[in-house]
Every structure is written in structure tokens, then in C-alpha cells.
Write a protein that binds this DNA or RNA. Structure first.
Lengths: 138, 138
DNA sequence: TGTAGGGCCTCTAGTCACTAGAGCATCAAG
DNA sequence: CTTGATGCTCTAGTGACTAGAGGCCCTACA
């Protein structure tokens, strides 16, 4: 039996975040001790570990809710989980592509700058004028 | 002179977003016509273009506010803008690195799956157990 | 047994960058 | 003169938390 603070330390999820997950129905309500404090068992630990890992992988809480509702069902239907995971993979890949273009553009922009020697700042004008961009980000 | 709708179409920034930028002091308050409707000139167009471009590059509105306050000052001090842009570049690069690790992990996870033929779902167990991860994401 | 301090409780409100909707006024075209 | 699009303000909602107030509880130590 862990207190919320012990659970927090063990999983790296902050105490108010754990309570928030409970509030939105992502974590089941744990038992309470005589003084109305939350007491978690191994299952609570595992559920929170699942959420934490999935959040690290960029899944939304909504996606996680769906996956958790599927988990533990008789003859778990993997196809929905698979669909969610693949959608997430595609989203991540798209984000990478976009960010790489942005990095290129930012690199170009920062190299324009003479580091504050005064005069007009090319960084600012580059930011102000999309037409100067090498690539078609955004 | 443009209406807010024309400005929106020209820049691709939605009408409520333009009003929001004005509300938080990012865009100067434009003039109004007899019927209290906003009327923008070329300067408004340019300011919004600057914001839009910088947002596309991932700058926060706070960063943009600083950059805009620097812009137009006598002997613009480029160093602050440069610092912001470089910090932004570093942040973008870090995000790319992280996302690449996530993509690898997601790829690994989705490939575990037999597409819903029943039985226990390895995607779910992979998500539940960080120890299964190949890399040290998150 | 008393007490000090941490941890825990609920509740409200704030964050960022918008987005949606209500309910009304105004504008431009026919 | 009417109609429908566009505009106005205001409030509230989004996601995923985070911060703070004001109080209760638990544990360790004297």
C-alpha cells in the first residue's frame, strides 16, 4: 500500500497530476485510509506506469483512455490499439519532418546575424518576411 | 484599408485569433470605422505577418512580444533576438531528437502486433512496461 | 502525551494559444 | 429595402496540467 506521494516518487508523476488523472476518470478511484487519504496497490502502480509510458510516447489522454478500456477485456481486440499506435507513429513522423524544415530555417536565420553590433537586424527582417525563406515551412 | 476578415484571408490567421492577439497586446489596436469595425493598414498586415511567421517557426507569443518590442528601436540590439532564435533552434533540435526516439519505439511497438487476431495484445504490454523499450525515451 | 513538520485533503483559479458560441450590430449587394 | 455575410463583445471551453489557499492527518521525537 502506497500513499499518493510514494506513488508519485515511484513513477515520476507529480501528485496533483495523479489526482487529475483520477478526476477525469483515467485512473480508478483508489481506496482510502481512515483519515481519507488515498492508498494505492500494485494495480494502481501499474495503471499509472502505463499512462506515464504512453504519455512519454506522445499519446493523448483520450487515446490512453481508449487503450486502457481495451486492456483486460476478454479477447482484447488489438486492432483498435494498433490503429491508435500507428496514427501516433504517423503524427510523430509528420512532426519530425516539419521540425526539420523549421530547424533549417532557424539555422539560416541565426547565421544572418552579426551578434548585436548594431545596425539593422537581419534576423528580425528574416522573421518578418516569409518570402525570404528557403523552404516552404508552415 | 482591410477589414479583419480580409486581413485574415491575406495572412491565414483566423479572425478570433487576430482579436486575441490584439487583446493580449501583441498587435496594436487598429483604427475603427464609423460602425466600430476594425480597419487595418499595411503596418497591421506586416505585424501580423511577422507573428504568423514566428509562430510557424515555433516561437512562443512571449518571445514574439519581446522581438516585436525590440524591432523598431533605435540601433536595434540584435543580441537578444539572436539569443531567442538560437534558443529556439536548440529547442527544435532537441524536440527532433526526442521525437526520433519515439518514432523508433512506436515502430517497434506497432510491429509487435498481429492485427487483432485475438490473444493478448503485445502493443498493450509494451506500453505498460517501459523495461521492454529498446531506447531510453522520455 | 504533546507537538512540530511534513504530507495529504478539497477547491478554485491560472497557464498557453487558441476555439466556439450567444446575441446583437453593421455592411455590401441586389 | 431586404438579405446574408461579416463584424462586434462577452463568456466559456479545450488539453494537460500547475499553483495556491486553507485546512486535516500522520509520524517521529522529546
Amino acid at each position: 500500500m502506497f500513499s499518493i506521494g510514494q506513488l508519485s516518487k515511484a513513477t515520476g508523476v507529480k501528485v496533483p497530476t495523479i489526482r487529475y488523472y483520477e478526476e477525469i476518470g483515467l485512473l480508478p478511484q483508489p481506496g482510502r485510509n481512515a483519515g481519507n487519504q488515498r492508498r494505492y496497490g500494485q494495480d494502481g502502480m501499474e495503471a499509472l506506469g502505463f499512462i506515464r509510458h504512453a504519455r512519454d510516447l506522445g499519446f493523448s489522454l483520450e487515446d490512453i483512455k481508449v487503450m486502457m478500456s481495451i486492456e483486460g477485456q476478454l479477447g482484447e481486440d488489438c486492432s483498435e490499439v494498433h490503429r491508435i499506435a500507428e496514427a501516433q507513429l504517423n503524427a510523430v513522423r509528420a512532426r519530425i519532418t516539419r521540425l526539420e524544415r523549421l530547424a533549417g530555417e532557424l539555422e539560416r536565420i541565426t547565421h544572418l546575424c552579426g551578434h548585436g553590433q548594431g545596425g539593422d537586424c537581419k534576423v528580425l527582417s528574416a522573421l518578418g518576411d516569409h518570402g525570404q525563406c528557403g523552404s516552404d515551412h508552415g
